[in-house]
């Protein structure tokens, strides 16, 4: 029954106290659980190790070599990833062509494939005999260049995963960019290549830095493909992720934890540096 007299409170003016507070409490609670998990893991690592363990680990020449190879290989594979991902991301974002879906699916394979399988596939690729010809042998005989179980294998194993992530980042960057500016440049005389180089690419600076960051971080964490394809030879193909494995397998848990924390420290420093570089680029 519709009231015809008495006080009727307008619907829009009803007080709904605390609705925002509850919202932020629920959202904050769910979000902080993940952050808390990471913080607790790091604190547990710190509690487990000591400064002396850390020093001892850092003084080992094989770990020092692993640090340098890690920094170098991650940087090279990240640069290579962005170099390849930029044109590939642009083509996927801008053009519809036959087999595009297939290319799109193939790029995702290194992301979904178990890391060990990826390493095994790389190993097979370089050692498969085709009519008496083998890629690894050809590279060694022709260029005196060893890939498998040497430092190039470390970079290639890192690159094969990191590049897939970089392509995703670059594709998203170009998809969010207004393609019309490139069209206008073409009506004024630019070729497609010039429109890409001088109109699209300068706008993609931030996306390229993001792709570089993701690739670098992925490369740092890569373990499975490196172990299978490059091996884990001390002073030769050992990187920090495989150091943790080697120290663990010899029962040296304090050293493994110390190296793990070192990896966290290196990752944080590099990521902060790249973020700062990114904010400079935005400015």
């Amino acid at each position: 029954m519709i009231p015809i007299s008495g006080e009727v409170k307008p619907a829009g003016r009803r007080r709904r106290a605390g609705s925002d507070g509850r919202f932020f409490l629920i959202m904050g609670g769910i979000s902080s659980s993940f952050v808390l998990l990471i913080v607790l893991m790091l604190l547990a690592d710190l509690a487990f190790t000591s400064v002396q363990d850390f020093k001892d680990a850092l003084m080992k020449p094989e770990i020092q070599a692993a640090i340098w190879l890690t920094l170098l290989s991650c940087t090279v594979s990240a640069i290579l990833s962005v170099w390849v991902a930029t044109p590939l991301g642009y083509v996927l974002a801008r053009y519809r062509f036959p087999g595009r879906w297939l290319v799109d699916t193939l790029i995702d394979i290194p992301i979904v494939l178990p890391p060990l399988v990826l390493g095994l596939s790389l190993l097979i690729l370089f050692h498969l005999e085709i009519g008496g010809w083998q890629l690894e042998r050809w590279l060694r005989n022709t260029f005196d260049f060893q890939v498998t179980f040497a430092w190039p294998a470390v970079i290639l194993a890192q690159f094969s995963v990191a590049c897939a992530f970089a392509v995703r980042a670059m594709r998203m960057t170009f998809e969010q960019m207004n393609a019309r500016a490139e069209d206008v440049a073409r009506t004024l005389g630019y070729s497609r290549g010039q429109a890409f180089l001088y109109i699209a690419l300068p706008q993609a600076e931030q996306g390229m830095l993001t792709a570089l960051t993701i690739s670098w971080a992925r490369s740092l964490g890569e373990f499975g493909p490196i172990l299978v394809f490059a091996g884990s030879t001390r002073m030769k193909t050992e990187v920090l992720s495989t150091t943790v494995f080697l120290e663990l397998s010899t029962g040296n848990l304090p050293a493994a934890v110390a190296v793990s924390l070192l990896m966290v420290f290196v990752a944080v420093v590099v990521l902060i540096f790249l973020r700062l570089l990114g904010s400079e680029a935005i400015r």
Partner: peptide
């Protein structure tokens, strides 16, 4: 013909200025 060879000046709806 290629767009650049047609002697056209084009102003699209969103203007599409070159941001950099």
């Amino acid at each position: 013909w290629r767009p650049g060879d047609r002697g056209i000046g084009y102003v699209p709806q969103d203007l599409a200025l070159f941001p950099r």
